[in-house]
Write a protein that binds this DNA or RNA. Structure first.
Lengths: 176, 176
DNA sequence: GAGCATAATGGCACCGGGTGCCAAATGGAA
DNA sequence: TTCCATTTGGCACCCGGTGCCATTATGCTC
């Protein structure tokens, strides 16, 4: 698996040739399955976002908007306890390897679009309007802060940290 | 100038060879002045951040934290009216060209560090703690949303949009 | 101004990610 | 088996980025 190579050699030091060879396919074929080396790490994120959309659709209409965002984002990031170590290693790559950090921005765009779409729906505005976009960007931001905190501090529950960060956001970071 | 090439040919289609040639220097020399082709667009951002640090240092200690953040970020992004068109074109590149969008994430890290440092100072926490990081990430996020909105809508004042977005943030996006 | 040390320059070869092209392999359906 | 469509992967190529090294300014001392 490619992840073992990343683990052993580091992401940058692992060439596409090596990944392809270890998967028993040609280099050219690799690039038919993955747009880029970076995308190996991200996998089927786009499809996962459909789940997030569904979760949003199920929130009660009278729930405060930022409450819905918090709930959905927290649940969206809940992973099977057995998968936590794997998830952690994956997120370590995404959040700490500069090349992936940079590339991931493009994926986050899709994530934000889902949040912005829902926020726009709730606010009666266009998804491209300032507030939905600001909400999406802010929710993404605090989520990333939560992820980093979770990675840095051992023994934390990801969902707890996300919940706390998104609660702070909904509170406007008062008492500062 | 490199920017004219980006304008005419597009960022991706402009090769480093072409930039170097148009600047009358060797390709190898180019890479001594810029870490990457992406960095041409960013210029001396790191030094500008020192100004932001100074602005933070000058805020009164009894001002609500998010108020200080709003004020500093807005002022930090105020540009000489004569420079607005240039600033606009530069930000169009940064926010719309995928390669730059991705790369810029790394620069934003420095920006966030300045905000987190101040927030940590005000909260009596470590800059790496959850709240300062969340605040920095959120402030960056809504600022990017503001920038995008400013770019998309003509006739807006960047500072006004930033002010609005950061005010919403400080309010926790209530009335949603 | 001559001589010298130091830094700046840029040519060259190389690496690695990514792509277009095309021929060979694969795998059904008839 | 034959035929067609799809998948595969080799090959050459482009481009960004780097290490190495010879050459060329630059600036200082005498």
């Amino acid at each position: 698996m490619a992840f073992e190579l990343f683990e052993r050699e580091g992401f940058d030091a692992t060439t596409v040739d090596a990944i392809a060879k270890s998967a028993g396919i040609g280099r050219r074929t690799f690039f038919r399955y993955f747009e880029s080396k970076n995308d190996v790490v991200w996998g089927s994120f786009t499809e996962q976002l459909d789940h997030m959309r569904e979760r949003f659709a199920q929130r009660p209409a009278d729930e405060p908007l930022m409450e819905s965002v918090r709930a959905v984002v927290v649940e969206f990031n809940r992973v099977d306890p057995a998968e936590v170590p794997k998830h952690r290693r994956r997120m370590e790559l995404i959040l700490r390897v500069p090349a992936l950090q940079a590339h991931s921005t493009l994926r986050y765009g899709d994530w934000r679009a889902v949040v912005a779409e829902y926020a726009a729906h709730r606010l009666g505005e266009q998804p491209s309007a300032l507030r939905p976009q600001a909400i999406a960007y802010a929710a993404l931001g605090v989520s990333l802060a939560a992820y980093e905190h979770w990675l840095a501090e051992s023994g934390l529950q990801l969902c707890d940290v996300l919940d706390e960060a998104l609660s702070e956001l909904a509170r406007g970071f008062v008492l500062g």
